[in-house]
Amino acid sequence: MAGDGRREERFRALFDAHYDRVHAYATRRAGASLADDVAATTMGIAWRRLDAIDPRLELPWLLTTARNVVSTTVRGEVRRRARDAAGAPEPGPDLASGVVERDAIARALATLPDADRELLLLCTWDDVSPADAARVLGITPGTARVRLHRARRRFRDAYGHHPDSPGTARPEALAIGELA
């Protein structure tokens, strides 16, 4: 039918325009091993709910969905690894491997509340505008700006904080399942 053709045409355009960014997001949040699955699942949901996606807000919609998929997938992965008692803990997101500041960054990120950390990473790692990040997190742009400012300040403070101080989060907190 003509309607089906138009639907697939629109999905093809959406897929071509955003698949790589969704995949990159999934790689950073869930690790390379899960990125293909997360991106494919996200695109499958997008196809099924294509009529509900505002054409002007496709990327925020996809990232919101990918975030939820990552959360679900990572939780399942954590459970699976817990069952495999022999499995050694693996730093899920390939966070700054080989970079001297890795521990300091991981500790500083771990001190942020989940929503603030996600907002900071969306804007810093994924080049998402604060307005789109607000849509991803379901908050108003004004709130996003305030939280982003606060998150940056807290990150700076925590980054300069001595790593062995009491109350400082351990970098392992950023293992897979914690960051997403």
Binding site: Y19, D20, H23, A24, T27, R28, A32, A35, D36, A39, P93, D94, L95, A96, S97, V99, E101, R102, A104, I105, A108, L109, L120, T124, W125, R152, F155, R156, Y159, G160
Partner: peptide, 16 residues
């Protein structure tokens, strides 16, 4: 610059 360090620490996005 902590934020620059964070930006530089972004995991490499492996192309699909």
């Amino acid at each position: 610059d902590p934020l620059a360090a964070l930006r530089a620490a972004a995991p490499e996005a492996v192309a699909a």
